[in-house]
């Protein structure tokens, strides 16, 4: 399909991960997702499905959320604001802020996936693939794809992310159904999975000085502003708290430029 690109002429041994062919890379990616990545994310989405049910949304709305708006924090924020009686505008801005980090993630990953591509600008396949860029698939692709033949990178990424995407859609449905068959106390535990999961994820990030202040200020402002204005509390937390954290971090970087990230 593409003109001859230089990576193809290199010996296969130049790439430490070689699946033999693009199709093989797609299968390799799919197998890499089966197991821990699909299970951990699946559990989160079982929690999300239960959360959807508890929030009064329908089965199809929950599944549609995971199919179309795939990125868990934004999905949770959207439903939180809907249930709190917030406006569409408030929900749009909150999801926009929660998911804004997807943009720089795509910016960093796409050049790796497109390396050796002769076309000057991204093609349709890249715009379609971008829908599957979320935290888990991005982190794995950033780590593993640079070691692969460039022709195998996009197939690997798509194989990996399609498996975890489909499993999250399935788990959203599963979580929704479990609420109807399990005792209410067990349901509470399922709904609480995601707050606990993200709390622990953020605990890891507290040591990173580029994230520490945003997290600490957000934790304090979130509940406080929610009491003052349930509709706009999250937005103000993000904009005011995030900007404040950014200024502190900038000041810190200028004073201690050599201290690295932690």
């Amino acid at each position: 399909m593409e003109p001859q690109s230089s990576p193809d002429r290199q010996a296969s041994s130049a790439w430490t991960h070689d699946f033999g062919s693009p199709a093989g890379a797609g299968r390799g990616g799919a197998w890499a997702a089966v197991g821990a990545p699909a299970l951990v994310l699946g559990a989160s989405y079982v929690g999300f499905g239960a959360f959807v049910h508890q929030s009064g949304l329908t089965f199809f709305q929950g599944v549609a959320s995971s199919i179309t708006g795939w990125a868990l924090p934004g999905q949770i924020a959207l439903i939180e604001i809907f249930v709190a009686g917030g406006s569409l505008l408030a929900a749009a801005i909150a999801v926009g802020l929660a998911n804004a980090r997807l943009m720089p993630m795509v910016v960093t990953l796409l050049p790796i996936l497109r390396e050796g591509d002769a076309a000057p600008s991204p093609r349709l396949i890249h715009y379609l693939s971008a829908h599957f860029i979320a935290l888990t698939g991005w982190a794995v692709a950033m780590q593993r794809c640079p070691d692969m033949n460039p022709r195998q990178r996009l197939p690997f990424f798509l194989g990996f992310t399609l498996v975890i995407w489909l499993s999250t859609v399935f788990c959203t449905a599963l979580g929704f159904f479990l609420v109807e068959v399990l005792p209410p106390t067990v349901t509470l535990g399922l709904v609480f999975l995601n707050p606990l999961y993200f709390m622990l994820l953020f605990t890891i990030d507290i040591v990173r000085r580029d994230r520490r202040w945003a997290l600490l200020i957000g934790v304090v402002l979130g509940p406080l502003l929610h009491m003052i204005t349930p509709e706009w509390g999250l937005l103000i937390t993000g904009l005011v708290g995030g900007s404040l954290a950014f200024l502190i971090t900038q000041y810190d970087r200028q004073r201690n430029p050599g201290r690295g990230k932690s």
């Binding site: 959360f51 508890q54 929030s55 009064g56 924090p73 949770i76 924020a77 939180e80 249930v83 709190a84 909150a94 802020l97 929660a98 998911n99 804004a100 980090r101 943009m103 720089p104 209410p184 349901t187 509470l188 709904v191 995601n194 707050p195 993200f198 709390m199 953020f202 990030d205 580029d210 994230r211 202040w213 945003a214 997290l215 600490l216 200020i217 957000g218 934790v219 304090v220 402002l221 979130g222 509940p223 502003l225 929610h226 009491m227 509390g233 999250l234 937005l235 937390t237 993000g238 904009l239 708290g241 995030g242 900007s243 954290a245 950014f246 971090t249």
Partner: peptide, 23 residues
């Protein structure tokens, strides 16, 4: 952008723990 996203998400998680809606 990253700071705003992290502050918002940290606020969301704190709110889900301290003042959740629903059951």
């Amino acid at each position: 952008v990253a700071c705003v996203a992290y502050a918002l998400l940290a606020g969301l998680i704190a709110r889900l723990i301290v003042a959740p809606q629903g059951a």
